[in-house]
């Protein structure tokens, strides 16, 4: 039905039992196990796509090895992070990117001094 992570108990390779970690995507929590990438957590929990392409199409993981950039999202305020390459840390905040990608607002003094430009 969907992508999913093999439960350790059913896994013939006998991985250790889960060490649950929780990340959020646009505020929705997703739980995986320590050692997964952010893309792995999302796919393992059945989430297939998160980004919106310039033409409005849904994108998730395509190449899985850091080449295609389909899976990029903003992670803890840093934009354009390849989720398939980034190890998940409990509490990571992932925000999807699309035509209205969120702005990284970390650097001091970079917020707009005023409202909208008047020209």
């Amino acid at each position: 039905m969907v992508s999913r992570r093999m439960p350790p108990a059913a896994d013939p390779t006998r991985p250790p039992s889960d060490v649950p970690i929780t990340i959020t995507l646009d505020g929705t929590p997703y739980t995986g196990t320590a050692g997964q990438t952010l893309a792995g957590v999302l796919l393992g929990a059945g989430r297939l796509s998160w980004r919106t392409s310039p033409g409005g199409a849904s994108r998730g993981v395509f190449c899985g090895i850091g080449v295609c950039f389909d899976c990029i999202a903003t992670v803890n305020d840093a934009c354009d992070v390849r989720l398939c390459q980034r190890r998940a840390v409990d509490g990571d905040r992932v925000v999807s990117q699309g035509l209205d990608a969120p702005l990284p607002l970390r650097s001091a003094g970079t917020r707009p001094a005023h409202g909208v430009a008047d020209v």
Binding site: S3, P8, T13, L43, R59, F62, C63, G64
Partner: peptide, 22 residues
């Protein structure tokens, strides 16, 4: 480009390094 279409390399990497089936 529909979600659910993966490169074979992605299917491999997710299986081997995540134990995730696509």
């Amino acid at each position: 480009d529909l979600p659910g279409v993966f490169s074979a390399g992605a299917a491999q990497a997710l299986a081997k390094a995540e134990r995730v089936a696509v």
